[in-house]
Design a protein around this nucleic acid. Structure first.
Lengths: 153, 153
DNA sequence: GCATAATAGTTACATTTGAAACTAATTCAG
DNA sequence: CTGAATTAGTTTCAAATGTAACTATTATGC
């Protein structure tokens, strides 16, 4: 074998494995809230961010959920049209506007959260408590490291 | 507290964490091959599948890389236009066509594989060998379980 | 102060993606 | 056999997405 550069075994290749795992989890969860609540994945994430940290500006939301400002803007537009999110222009800096869930938005959020946590719990059932902690710690480290690598180039 | 349904802490929520981890890893890798080779993520995955398992039909490819047939069809069309993939209609069943990398495709594949494996190795450096095995085993179990949950409904 | 640059957010356009309809070939039921 | 049902793969049309341009407002340099 002249050039024994290892073969790429797709099924064992970390980026690929992470991608399909994240995909099936995200789609499974979406199956649970898409139909009853009519939310896209991005809309739900914006609601989740506001449910936890409101009030936030659109930029804050984007930072929290790692989503660019255009995507946030569109998700918020859709949520406002349905009366789920309220916006208040900042008096001091009128470029900014703080966002928060409306009463309706909070009510919907409160109904989705147990569904989301229930799914997560169901998923975690395949791991022991210790494995679960271990997995969380490992993903955390991988994430931090991946960010570092990316910036370093 | 009347309804103590735990709060959803987005930053600790498994589906969310997996999603952003997979995203940054996939994008980082894409940064490495997009510019020099002009491939999309889906095109690269098709090449990787063919590089490892050819010949495959389009359906086979879709199964391997968890991608629907429309996406495979489009990726293959692009790769064929660039002379990276060859198609041969099956004599026995003329609906099918087996796909494989062309000589050019193999050459490009051979140049990308070390880059991809190098990135993976770099990413894994933040884990010990044992942590790495552990992480692989845990993702494998989570993936199998997520598939099971999804089908069960 | 006033022109310039920077920031928050939206809009417009082009590309990508996904769902459904479609074509072509094969299988199956009677 | 013959017509309905299946399967492989492509095309079509609508929706989602990303990039870049744009508006409005605030900060900065001189």
């Amino acid at each position: 074998m002249p050039c024994p550069s290892q073969a790429l075994e797709l099924e064992n290749f970390l980026p690929y494995r992470l991608s399909i795992l994240a995909q099936i989890v995200s789609e499974s969860l979406h199956d649970l809230y898409a139909d009853p609540f009519g939310l896209t994945v991005t809309q739900w994430r914006v609601m989740a961010a506001l449910g936890r940290f409101a009030p936030l500006t659109a930029s804050d939301v984007g930072q929290r959920i790692v989503m660019d400002k255009v995507a946030v803007s569109r998700a918020v537009a859709g949520l406002r049209k349905r009366g789920l999110v309220e916006r208040a222009t900042d008096r001091a800096d009128r470029r900014r506007a703080s966002l928060r869930l409306s009463a309706r938005g909070r009510a919907m959020h409160a109904r989705i959260v147990p569904i989301a946590l229930g799914y997560e719990e169901r998923l975690y059932k395949v791991l022991t408590a210790e494995e679960r902690r271990s997995f969380d710690a490992l993903t955390e480290r991988l994430f931090a490291h991946a960010k570092g690598i990316r910036q370093a180039g």
